[in-house]
Write a protein that binds this DNA or RNA. Sequence first.
DNA 1: AACTTACTTTATTCAATGAAGCAAGTATCA
DNA 2: TGATACTTGCTTCATTGAATAAAGTAAGTT
Lengths: 416, 416
Amino acid sequence: MENLRIGNKQLIKDINRALVIKWIRNHGPISRTDISKETKLGLSTVTNIVEDLINNKLVFEVGEADSSGGRRPVLLEFNYEFGYTIGIKIEENHIILALTNLKAKILNKVILSCNKGEKSENVILLIVEGINKLIEKSNIPKDRVLGIGIAVSGLINGQKGIVIRSSLLGWSNVQLRERIESEFNVPVYIDNDVNAYTLAELWLGYGREHDNFICLSVGAGIGAGIVIDKKLYIGQFGGAGEFGHSIIQVNGYQCHCGQRGCLEMYASEKFLEKEGNLLLTQFEASILKNSDFTFETVHKAALGRDSLALELFKRLGEYLGIGLINMINSLNPETIIIAGEGMIAKDYFLPYAKEMADQNFFSKANYQTNYYVSELGEDAWVAGAALLAINQLFPIPIYNDSLLTSLQITSLGNEG
Amino acid sequence: MENLRIGNKQLIKDINRALVIKWIRNHGPISRTDISKETKLGLSTVTNIVEDLINNKLVFEVGEADSSGGRRPVLLEFNYEFGYTIGIKIEENHIILALTNLKAKILNKVILSCNKGEKSENVILLIVEGINKLIEKSNIPKDRVLGIGIAVSGLINGQKGIVIRSSLLGWSNVQLRERIESEFNVPVYIDNDVNAYTLAELWLGYGREHDNFICLSVGAGIGAGIVIDKKLYIGQFGGAGEFGHSIIQVNGYQCHCGQRGCLEMYASEKFLEKEGNLLLTQFEASILKNSDFTFETVHKAALGRDSLALELFKRLGEYLGIGLINMINSLNPETIIIAGEGMIAKDYFLPYAKEMADQNFFSKANYQTNYYVSELGEDAWVAGAALLAINQLFPIPIYNDSLLTSLQITSLGNEG
DNA sequence: AACTTACTTTATTCAATGAAGCAAGTATCA
DNA sequence: TGATACTTGCTTCATTGAATAAAGTAAGTT
């Protein structure tokens, strides 16, 4: 249950400190006066808080801006190097680790190979090794790492820190957080990979200026992250956004999840494979005849105007459109951001998807949903993983439960 | 954008007043000491706030509880008759109006008939007439009505107070709130009827002890209300929860909304009609042969073991199950509450729906979703409509925007 | 020299709070 | 029975500490 804090001086202080930090983080470099104007906090209040933040090295004065007829404003900037976080993405056959500053900017990267289907225990050992290597390579003191975020594909219970099930990795019920946390004594956060990507969009991409959207990943599978009021919605145990397993066809293709007719079987790489092989007989001339069906190979074929490839993408697009309709009609998002490996071939399927999706329930009432193609690169996955941790360092301090990890920073001011 | 208030004394005061009110509302009769213990507010703080509330007649002392070795605790109870609200449900051929106290308890009811397909302007006039009649009948001063809530089936933009589209009523773009508000000079809230019912579940039913659920209504159509963290999620413009128009069958039955294969065509009364007529040739002996197909008629037939009726409910149940799967997989709710007129026949279709729905993505990982059959009666629709207004009277005052209407009450204390 | 803009210092305000006190009961025991 | 000690509930009051408005200082432009 959401436990709102009671009103007292400490709450005032925490809220206003967090507010000032937020403004400097999101809009810095910025002057004290501007913070005061924007937040409606009294100027002297801002002065006091900023002094405190500077003493704690969370904020720096970085120079002066031009005057417009009076004393020059002193510009403040957040100290993104106050500490570091590590973002990790576990993939089928390698692990990507990145050291980031508190802006989720990647400062250093380590990529380790591992065998496909490797046991979780061995992967954990690899991760530990990778973290150590990364810290050493980056030449920073270990205790400046303030948090670790790990992105894993599959069903994740972030609160408990458990990988419930990952069909890609072949894991189930792995206590990932506990293992890494005990090794480094630093808060560790884990979440679904698409959720991590969604966080990257929220903080570094589209979400910088928007509060509500769904981020849909089209690739080997289908996944989605749901952002409501600038917060990631995770559901009862972290399983929200499994749109890939919404059923769009009664008695449709058998899905690996046990259901039939899942969207994932119609709008991800799995569809290219399945439908591609079925259609081969009708498209004898296709250059895909002796190839496998991945976004890459089919895309290449499509570039060469291969008619099987074109047909596959057309069908995938139309099915994806139905998936989009279901998202729109059930959640009514402002925008759907589309990302994932599949987007290399976006020109060949997105138009069909959009055309189909525009037939949604709301469009009849002239309420449009926006589509937006993610512009973040590959690095967004690990950056998003790092954000799993960064996100927790500066929470809005109005709830009781959010204090556990953030205390380290937000209450530094009480000591001095 | 959610605009968090800045920290100052007024915020402290508002939070703590709201907190005390909440405890008395939800757990009264309760003593000052117990409030202090539960909220962690200082006892003297509670005393002060309570004094204020009593002066403003928001709270009453209602007697003493037994002593357990010391002075008897003085019990406080919320004054649910501090004011009244009016809940209204607009149906196809009548309008139901109810006067409620601030607990959404129905004190008086007026039902007006109107023609099916009546123009919105005439219906509005009827509503005005009904409200006046209700107030007169209840013998209360007009200015004790603190808010009016109206539940309408269809697509509603609650923020703007507009009925965007209601296929049942044949309305589109009706400025309902503005019209009623200008007539009575009292805040008016409008929302989708299922959202109103969901609010009733949230405050009067299942939600009293739970924070996250989806409330699904099975009747003439299919609708759903989504509760996240004890708050109704409404989407970009109030259209969240249109699960009825999620597509479960590519190229399926044509829906009135323009799409094909909507859940609403497979799991509401519309399905009984459509599929019933199609199946008549195979079930020559059915007593439904010259009947219409409503939940009522088909249910009666099922009671007589009519095999067409049984088959229809079986199929409806299975399709409904697929709808449930899609809800579960995309939102991962703790519980799905099922309600609506269709539930008279629940014994004939729910078992099939549950069996199907239990095949969802998460069940493979042993994470169960709960189903719960709504126990609120017919009155819950208007009670929920009243709650649309009541809900806004005592908001958690941490956001700037929530102050508009609640100020009347929460700042009474500043005057005395 | 007058005006602007940016920031700091200082006295004030006010809601929460802990401590002390008051109110009104129960338990114990002569 | 009733005097005393103890318990529990509530109130009063001085203190605290954060924001804040006002006055003062710094450093620029016109």
